[in-house]
Amino acid sequence: MTSRRHQDIIDRLQGAGYSLPDMPPAAIGAYTAALAAGLLVFTSGQLPLRDGVISTTGKVGETAGLVSPDVAAELAAQCAVNAIAALQRELGDLGRIDRIVKVTGFVASDPGFTEQSKVIDGASFLLKEVFGEAGVHTRSAVGVAALPKNSPVEVELVAFLHVDAA
Rank of each mutant, 00 (worst) to 15 (best):
G45Y: 00
L40P: 05
A64N: 11
V41W: 01
Q88Y: 06
L40E: 13
D93K: 14
I54H: 06
A34W: 00
G58L: 05
A76G: 11
S68G: 14
A86C: 08
I54G: 04
L47Q: 03
G45M: 03
G52W: 12
L40I: 06
D51E: 14
L87D: 06
A73L: 08
A83H: 04
L35N: 13
S44I: 01
K59Q: 13
Q78G: 04
T57D: 00
S44W: 01
A80Q: 03
G61E: 01
V67C: 07
F42T: 08
L75K: 12
S55Y: 10
A77G: 11
V67L: 06
I54R: 07
R96C: 06
L35H: 13
L91G: 10
L47S: 02
L40R: 14
A83S: 14
S44L: 01
G92T: 11
V53K: 15
L75M: 06
A37T: 13
R99M: 10
G38E: 09
I54W: 03
A36N: 10
G95E: 01
T63I: 10
I97Y: 03
T57P: 02
T56I: 14
L87I: 11
L49V: 07
L75A: 06
T56G: 05
L91N: 11
S44A: 15
G45Q: 06
A73D: 07
G38L: 08
I97Q: 04
G61K: 07
A83L: 03
A85D: 02
A34Q: 02
L94Q: 05
S55L: 14
A85E: 02
V41C: 12
L87G: 12
G38N: 11
A36C: 11
A80C: 09
S44Q: 09
A37Y: 03
A80F: 00
L49Q: 09
G61F: 00
T63Q: 14
R89V: 05
P48A: 10
L87F: 04
L49E: 03
G58V: 09
T43N: 08
R96I: 02
S44D: 11
C79V: 10
R99Y: 07
Q46N: 09
I97E: 03
G58F: 02
D93L: 02
G52Q: 08
A80L: 04
K59S: 11
T63C: 06
T43P: 07
V53E: 06
G65V: 10
D51W: 12
I97C: 11
G45H: 03
A34L: 01
R96T: 07
G52C: 08
V41F: 00
G61T: 09
E90F: 00
L40S: 11
D70M: 15
D51T: 12
G61A: 05
G92W: 00
S55F: 10
A36G: 13
D93S: 11
A80H: 02
L49A: 08
A72R: 06
V67K: 10
L40N: 14
